[in-house]
């Protein structure tokens, strides 16, 4: 049976593992229980800075610490990172200070908390900031691996994690193959390539299996890093498959689909269908119900794949 896990747990584990580095510090804004930085806080209270419910302050405290030689990992819900957007822009990204911001509970998949909590624009807004690495991993193994690498990155970053458990895609041995900026082909295929991030990666695998039953060969890519985007991989998918689909639990405007489209129009051409939240706010619902309401669950990905192929 497939193991189920939440990406936020991979983040929490990575922080603990990173603690050997005395420069690693953790910043919280009263959501450590939820983002999973609480494990670090319990083990290393002296290196954990509680900022109260004050996200704007937290980002700039991080900037000050980064400028003083520390490696700050700050987290809150994805939606509340956006409250500190300008702090991230002017105080972190502009001076290129390596503050690592993690937004948990991203996407409509976060569920019954409803639209106020379901960030559908975080990837888009942080992608517009120069210097900032933007990631949205799909399982706990890759989240842990990518978070560990951040400690050696000299750029600021934004990583979205998710609240709910999803199927684990990587075994622990695969951890070495996961690298910031490099997409991973999880399933080979020749007719169409489905490029996904976060919770949509497992949905894309399901879609590829359904397509296989109909004789359609679909590749599935875990594009955990939206920025810098793995353009070489996209180019090779275009030449191998000739049609692309993107899948994300994020507004169809500005996220992974847009990033791939930006690359395509400037390089090689292939038809692209984008599966994403159709430019509307969410509502309260269970995680799986939300993927249906937003028309982004696996059947919608399969439909998009057939459409992309028909446009070749």
């Amino acid at each position: 049976m497939t193991r189920m896990a939440a990406t936020r747990d991979g983040y929490g584990q990575a922080l603990l593992d990173l603690a050997d580095n005395p420069k690693v510090v953790v910043l919280e804004a009263d959501l450590g229980k939820s983002t999973k930085s609480l494990h670090f806080r319990k083990a290393h209270p002296e290196r954990t800075v509680s900022c109260g419910i004050g996200e704007q302050n937290m980002l700039l405290v991080g900037a000050g610490m980064a400028a003083s030689g520390y490696i700050p990992f700050a987290s809150t819900f994805a939606i509340f990172t956006e409250r500190a957007f300008e702090q991230m822009r002017n105080g972190v990204a502009r001076p290129n200070l390596a503050v690592h911001l993690c937004g948990s509970h991203g996407g409509t998949h976060t569920g019954t908390d409803g639209s106020s909590a379901q960030s559908i624009e975080d990837l888009a807004v942080f992608r517009t900031l120069p210097n900032v690495v933007v990631m949205h991993p799909c399982d706990d193994v890759s989240t842990r691996a990518l978070t560990m690498q951040l400690a050696d990155t000299n750029s600021p970053s934004y990583m979205r994690t998710a609240r709910n458990k999803t199927p684990v895609m990587y075994d622990d041995a695969a951890e070495g193959t996961i690298q910031i900026g490099k997409g991973v082909q999880l399933k080979e295929g020749t007719d169409v390539a489905i490029i996904a991030c976060g919770v949509m990666v497992s949905e894309s695998i399901k879609a590829a299996e359904a397509l296989a039953a109909e004789g359609v060969s679909a590749a599935v890519i875990d594009m955990h890093t939206l920025k810098p985007l793995d353009g070489d991989l996209i180019d090779s998918l275009v030449s191998r498959c000739g049609a692309l689909v993107t899948a994300e639990d994020h507004n169809v405007i500005g996220g992974l689909g847009s990033a791939v489209a930006e690359h395509l129009v400037a390089n090689t051409f292939a038809p692209l269908e984008m599966v994403g939240v159709p430019d509307r706010f969410g509502e309260s619902g269970q995680a799986d119900e939300m993927l249906e309401v937003m028309n982004i669950s696996s059947p919608y990905i399969a439909v998009a794949a057939r459409k992309a192929i028909s446009r070749k």
């Binding site: 019954t112 908390d113 409803g114 639209s115 106020s116 509502e283 309260s284 619902g285």
Partner: peptide, 13 residues
């Protein structure tokens, strides 16, 4: 409350 389509959304709306 917290049910899909419900007037009682997770947070007051």
């Amino acid at each position: 409350y917290r049910v899909l389509g419900g007037v009682c959304q997770g947070h007051v709306d």
